[in-house]
Write a protein that binds this DNA or RNA. Structure first.
Lengths: 346, 346
DNA sequence: CTGAAAGCGCTAACAC
DNA sequence: GTGTTAGCGCTTTCAG
């Protein structure tokens, strides 16, 4: 690999001139240097530059699971923005584990200029971990306490859950079930509470038997739906099911897929026996026997927004006038398809 | 950030001793050093180490599109292996563009020790580009010419396509259509040819009107299916369609999703009017009105295999006795669900 | 077993 | 405008 010295020698100048030209300064023998650079196929050594400048032009992106389509799209959005700015992206999956996340962060801090993260855990220890990094951080989708102290991008979970509830209500449903994600996360809590509050405001109470709370995973979604079925909440014989629910809200796509799997296996007909609505769109949602009505959110746009916030903060990092903390909330939208209908008589 | 000097001073030794301890050598004051390290929260600076050693403990992973679930799973597999070995992963999407890929590679080479890549293009110029990197490279899914000169991991496309053809044949289909991906790629070619060859061996010819070849994209899949429908190959009135096809093979998941969308929009009933089978499993394939029968491949395992090959090559890199080039072919399997049936009478 | 010192490739004073 | 030079933090000779 050619170094700056080789270039300087070939061009007949000092290494300083080469370095300057590379930095965009005016140099007399610019042409000769350019020539030498291309002759030698010289490219500056990233480690040396990183060592010298304390900058790496590299961002760490940590998500719970890169194989989850939502996170993949999010990463894509972040990538799109940063690549055009000459930054590299290191992506890693935390597996929803604080310990893994903490280890990853430990390995990556020294190699990156900033961190974009969907934290595995929203507790105080995550906030401390992140703060200790002493680097620009942007939180995505989830927060870390009420006063995170970092920029934050997420979607309007409350409006989304409210829209879902209003829609179900407008269809005439009064006995509604809900499968929610972990309540120690912002999306988990916001969606759960907004949904129930909207129903409550309309005089509709959700009995505890019809509330399932657990991991944001396909597996939990499936188990929760199975329980609902076994309890007779869903799919009881028509007429007999006065106690059962006529509609189900599921708080994210992975859980929804699991629930759909269980519902399908049990032969529950959607929307005839049960109206189904969930948060997050997913691939092929429109191809299902009853195309699923969803609250969709803009994953790629979230990635862009997060990148923009981070870029701004990187720019001002170290200087005294930090831009104020920003919390960007992106809108979600109700995509009506065919998984919801008026409740059956009984 | 604490440096090795701080640690040395606190432990009352020279920086050399600290460095040695870190390298695993025996040192008298190991205990004091360990203490100092943890007191200061010291972690070696990656750039400095990279500069000094010419190694970065970092791998570049380049895929066409990280938002494609197959590639996301592949990346996950690679990640799993490397993370436990203390390597970082830089992921980037090439968008199926040689130019983008080439630029990415240019930006990344100096920062990584090896490259895992699903090349956007399989031509000679990609081979040259990769060879010029002078780093360990593993090709995944696609090759770069007949003599790539790199380790390669892919799946048994031929057997998979053959299995699909045999299955359709065994069901009694004789008029079969195919939607294939770009023929300048290994998977595109292998699947296409094996499928047609298997049919031909059974005396079944596929008319040119029933062969669609294009991008491996959802969009092309949709267009191809639409054409098939418009041409009267699919969905013609029963009895009238002696010229139409009774089964369709689609060569990958994204095209299959597009085709399914078009078929669904046109009201084609699967498998009553048309049997449908495709390469690659996809999320929720089992939830569709007619759960899709597929040839599934082990994305995560491919990632593991690629990582293992690369690890081995990194280890021996520079030494004289290079391990021989390896081409690892992983098996695929036919997952029978309900999208295929015997052809309708007419 | 240990410390001093050289140097990886680069940038940014500093002096001209 | 230009060249010289001092490190960035680390590993690794080389003496001891």
């Amino acid at each position: 690999m050619a170094t700056i010295h080789d270039v300087a020698k070939l061009a007949g100048v000092s290494i300083a001139s080469v370095s300057r030209m590379l930095a965009g300064e005016n140099v007399r023998s610019a042409e000769a240097i350019r020539q030498a650079i291309s002759d030698l196929g010289y490219r500056p050594n990233a480690s040396a530059r990183g060592l010298r400048l304390g900058k790496h032009h590299c961002i760490a992106v940590i998500v719970p699971d890169i194989a989850n389509p939502y996170f993949a799209a999010l990463v894509r959005g972040i990538e799109e923005r940063f690549m055009t700015q000459g930054f590299r992206i290191i992506v890693a999956s935390s597996d929803e584990q604080f310990s893994a996340e903490s280890e990853l962060l430990g390995n990556l801090v020294d190699a990156v200029d900033a961190i974009a993260i969907v934290p595995a855990e929203e507790g105080e220890r995550t906030r401390r971990l992140l703060a200790a990094l002493n680097k620009p951080v942007v939180l995505i989708d989830r927060s870390v306490g009420d006063e995170p102290g970092f920029d934050l991008v997420n979607v309007d979970n409350t409006s989304g859950a409210k829209a879902a509830a209003d829609y179900l209500l407008s269809l005439g449903h009064r006995r509604i079930g809900i499968i929610s994600g972990r309540q120690d996360t912002v999306p988990g809590r916001a969606r759960h509470q907004a949904f129930l509050a909207t129903l409550a405001a309309a005089g509709v109470d959700v009995p505890v038997e019809a509330i399932k709370i657990g991991e944001f995973s396909r597996d939990f979604g499936r188990r929760a739906a199975q329980e609902l079925i076994q309890q007779g909440q869903i799919g009881a014989a028509p007429g007999a099911g006065a106690a059962g629910i006529t509609a189900l809200f599921v708080a994210n796509n992975t859980m929804a897929q699991g629930a759909l799997l269980a519902l399908h296996a049990a032969g529950v007909s959607i929307p005839r026996e049960l109206s189904f609505i969930c948060f997050d769109d997913f691939d092929l949602a429109e191809l299902l026997p009853a195309p699923v009505t969803v609250i969709s959110r803009p994953a790629i746009a979230e990635g862009h927004a997060a990148a923009d916030l981070l870029l701004r903060r990187i720019e001002h990092f170290g200087s005294t006038n930090q831009p104020p903390l920003e919390h960007k909330v992106l809108p979600v939208s109700l995509t009506i398809r065919q998984s919801c209908a008026a409740p059956p008589f009984n």
